[in-house]
């Protein structure tokens, strides 16, 4: 049975960029232009989960992203690795969405797509780290959801999921359609093959504005938020690490032990 899959992919500032480049200005996070955005890492894991099912069971993958001025060669990575279609909810009105307005717009777009068996999201996005959107979409659509999956398999119309719990994992079964949020233990997204990159270059994403999914600008983005951002700031850290020296690394190691005793830590 071919499976219709939708993977929600968010474009975010590269979380692996050195901490020093993250600067808050005017209640917004700004990064230098040379730090390229990426697909949020957990969303990449989610895309990998879908690709594995497509390989094994067959099916179609639609990547779905929301934002404004999305960088084409970043977001088209989804096509390059094997997604069949890319839909962008792209408009000024989608800017400054919170978990609520993001999930609401994505769920509305998913209703418009209509056919879906599995929806994949990353467990949380690397910008706001809220971890709400996936479960929120499932609530709005009224479908079951399983969070923090490290393995997903489809057999006989059922999904079998390994869900990470504090000291191990649970094997959970659920019927289709369902939504799954994916964690990093599932594995990294594969590299795009040259053939995939070439094919992706020829494909154009479908772009939907709020009106295309039947929403007013007042229902999306900043206007549709449930939360108010009062303040974005960076706490000042007092960096005062005492570096323990020695004539050799071994001696420095031994001196560290002595130091800890002196500081009464032992």
């Amino acid at each position: 049975m071919p499976i219709n899959m939708i993977v929600c992919c968010k474009q975010v500032p590269d979380p692996e960029a050195p901490p020093a480049v993250f600067k808050v200005a005017g209640n917004k996070m700004t990064l230098p232009a040379d730090v390229k955005p990426v697909i949020s890492p957990y969303d990449e894991n989610a895309l990998e989960a879908a690709l594995r099912i497509k390989e094994k069971t067959g099916g179609k993958i639609t990547a779905l992203s929301l934002g404004n001025k999305l960088v084409r060669d970043v977001i088209k990575k989804s096509l390059a690795v094997g997604a069949d279609e890319l839909i962008l909810l792209e408009d000024e009105a989608f800017e400054e969405s919170d978990s609520w307005s993001t999930a609401y717009a994505l769920a509305t777009a998913i209703k418009k797509i209509g056919q879906y068996d599995l929806i994949f999201c990353g467990r949380q996005a690397a910008d706001w780290d809220a971890g709400q959107t996936g479960l929120g979409i499932a609530e709005i659509l009224g479908i079951p959801a399983v969070s923090v999956a490290r393995k997903v398999e489809v057999t006989d119309g059922k999904v079998r999921i390994e869900q990470v719990i504090p000291d191990g994992y649970e094997i959970v079964e659920v019927a289709l359609p369902t939504l799954i949020t994916v964690t990093s233990e599932l594995g990294d997204l594969r590299y795009a093959a040259l053939k995939g990159i070439m094919a992706a270059a020829k494909k154009q994403p479908t772009v939907w504005k709020p009106a295309d999914i039947g929403l007013e600008p007042s229902q999306v983005g900043a206007a549709g938020r449930h939360s108010k951002l009062n303040k974005l700031f960076q706490p000042v850290k007092e960096a005062k690490c005492e570096i323990i020296e020695g004539d050799s690394p071994e001696e420095a190691g031994a001196n560290l032990a002595v130091k800890l005793r002196e500081a009464k830590l032992l």
Binding site: F22, V24, M29, L229, N230, K231, L232, F233, Q234
Partner: peptide
């Protein structure tokens, strides 16, 4: 937020 690179206050 931002992987611990900032903090935000919400209401």
């Amino acid at each position: 937020v931002y992987g611990g690179n900032a903090q935000a206050t919400f209401s």
